[in-house]
């Protein structure tokens, strides 16, 4: 198509419509199943420790990616930690304004070398800073279904 015939609006273009008609049904995996069950049943976050590398993986992993040891030392890590980094979201996935804006953070959990990416709640975006101490807020036991969203969000630790 020549540049002079440029179509500005996509719905005006002659097009062939198509999609890929599949959905996916994943397994949580050997480690992932135990990790999610613990959140669902006990509102606790589990990690696995590699004794050789002295690392605690969160979310719990079946193997150490550094030395390839199979990990069988499971431990509960704290549901508290610190904001390692964060962002404030102003648009949703459909490009609509998010009001109020949402705060997304990578939370390093105490007692682990890892952590979780999750939303922050009960806090204004301008109150969030790197190093902020936070804790996980779990849904009620009856609402939990074995999902990472069983953690409602992390909120600033109350002292």
């Amino acid at each position: 198509m020549a540049i002079l015939e440029k179509v500005d609006k996509l719905h005006q273009a002659i097009a062939w419509q198509g999609d890929i008609p599949i959905t996916n049904r994943y397994t949580a995996g050997v480690a992932g199943e135990r990790f999610l069950r613990e959140i669902k049943d006990h509102a606790r976050i589990l990690g696995t420790r590699c004794p050789d590398c002295d690392l605690v993986y969160v979310p719990a992993a079946l193997f150490c990616e550094r030395c390839f040891a199979q990990l069988d030392e499971w431990l509960e890590v704290s549901s508290q930690g610190r904001v390692f980094t964060f962002t404030v979201l102003f648009r949703d996935l459909e490009d609509r304004p998010l009001d109020p804006p949402a705060v997304l953070a990578y939370v390093k959990l105490n007692g682990s070398n890892g952590g979780l990416v999750h939303y922050l709640g009960e806090v204004e975006p301008d109150q969030v800073f790197i190093g902020l101490e936070v804790e996980a807020v779990f849904k009620e036991a009856s609402e939990r279904e074995g999902s990472i969203l069983d953690i409602r969000y992390f909120r600033p630790l109350k002292r």
Partner: peptide, 26 residues
């Protein structure tokens, strides 16, 4: 249908291959 994730399946095979010739990942 494996309970294992793709990562876990890959690990199991890779670990077995290394063990079979007594090599470490390093």
């Amino acid at each position: 249908r494996a309970l294992e994730t793709g990562k876990e399946l890959a690990f199991e095979a890779a670990k077995m291959a290394l063990d079979s010739c007594e090599l470490t990942l390093q």
